[in-house]
Simulated assay, not measured.
Amino acid sequence: MESNLRYYLRRAAEERTAANRAVTPQARDWHSKLAGEFALRANACAPTAMTA
């Protein structure tokens, strides 16, 4: 089973690709927005580094 982190990273990449391939500015903006939201979710799932 795919972890949440890997899922969000994959979806962010897919949406960035869709934004790059979008024909209309509206579609490009929407895909970019989705890519950003998935990236934020991936960031929230990512393990944090421990500092001493």
Rank of each mutant, 00 (worst) to 15 (best):
E2R: 13
E2Y: 14
E2P: 14
S3W: 11
N4S: 12
N4H: 10
Y7C: 02
Y7E: 08
R10M: 08
A12V: 04
A12D: 01
A12L: 03
A13R: 03
E14D: 11
E14I: 08
E14P: 08
E15Y: 04
E15D: 12
R16H: 05
R16G: 02
T17M: 05
N20T: 08
A22L: 01
A22G: 05
A22C: 04
V23A: 09
V23W: 00
V23P: 03
V23K: 00
T24S: 14
T24V: 04
P25C: 02
Q26Y: 15
A27K: 03
A27T: 08
R28F: 05
R28C: 05
D29A: 15
D29I: 09
W30G: 10
H31C: 08
H31D: 11
H31I: 10
S32P: 09
S32M: 08
S32R: 05
K33F: 13
L34I: 14
L34E: 15
A35Y: 02
G36F: 04
E37A: 06
E37R: 06
F38S: 06
A39Y: 01
L40W: 07
L40M: 10
R41W: 12
R41N: 07
A42W: 01
N43W: 14
N43M: 10
C45I: 01
C45Q: 06
A46V: 03
P47G: 07
P47K: 01
P47S: 02
P47W: 04
T48P: 09
T48E: 11
T48R: 15
T48K: 14
T48I: 14
M50T: 12
M50S: 12
T51E: 10
A52D: 13
